[in-house]
Every structure is written in C-alpha cells, then in structure tokens.
Design a protein around this nucleic acid. Structure first.
Length: 95
DNA sequence: AATTTGACAATGT
DNA sequence: GACATTGCCAAAT
C-alpha cells in the first residue's frame, strides 16, 4: 500500500552504493513511485537515516538548500563535483 | 473544500 | 543556457 511505496523508496535509496549517485527520477522509476516528487517528499520527511546526499536532480545538480552540504559529503565519499554539478555520466548508479 | 507549496522531470521556445 | 508550461502527488494552510 502507500506505506510500501514509502518503504520501497527508502529501500532503493539505501541500496545506492558508496561512491555512486542516483537521480530522483531514477529512484522513482526503480521504486515504482508515481512521481519523483514522492522521492523528495520521503527524503524531507523521513530521510534522516538515509544517504540522501547520493540523490541528485536530473541534471546532476543537488537541491538548492542542501547543495553545499551535499557536495561536501559526496566529496568525502569519493564523488567529485564540478563546482555545483556532478558528472552523472561517471557517478550515476546503474542497477 | 480549495489553493498553495515542495529535497522534481520532460519538453518546448 | 534561461525561461515558461505541463504533469505529478501528498501535506500544510
């Protein structure tokens, strides 16, 4: 049910390996979410224990309010960002 | 009950 | 690359 969706989204996010990243759209598609907004909503509400820093927007740029922190965390994990943008072609997670 | 808002994406101009 | 439009769904006001 709706809780499962919530859990699936968390599951997929948790499944992203270190050193890789995924986009909201990818998570939504893999988890079966009706819209990528659900992913963002889950993270904002319940993403405190998840690797939210590995989730980027479709163009490789992180969410505006987190950008600075997120890039820092990613850098610590080995994901190098070009200024504000991450090379999805290099770091995008593919199942 | 109706509108707005929000960790978004795809397409067109 | 910037800007506008459309689709999307749940929670807050």
């Amino acid at each position: 049910m709706d809780e499962e969706l919530h859990e699936r989204i968390r599951e997929v996010i948790a499944g992203v390996p270190v050193g890789k990243v995924a986009t909201y759209g990818d998570i939504a598609s893999i988890a079966g979410a009706p819209s990528p907004r659900m992913v963002g909503r889950v993270l904002s509400e319940d993403g405190h224990d998840l690797p939210w820093q590995r989730i980027l927007r479709a163009n490789g740029t992180p969410a505006p309010h987190l950008a600075h922190r997120q890039l820092e965390l990613l850098r610590a994990e080995g994901v190098l960002a070009d200024g504000q943008r991450v090379n999805l072609r290099t770091y995008r997670w593919r199942p």
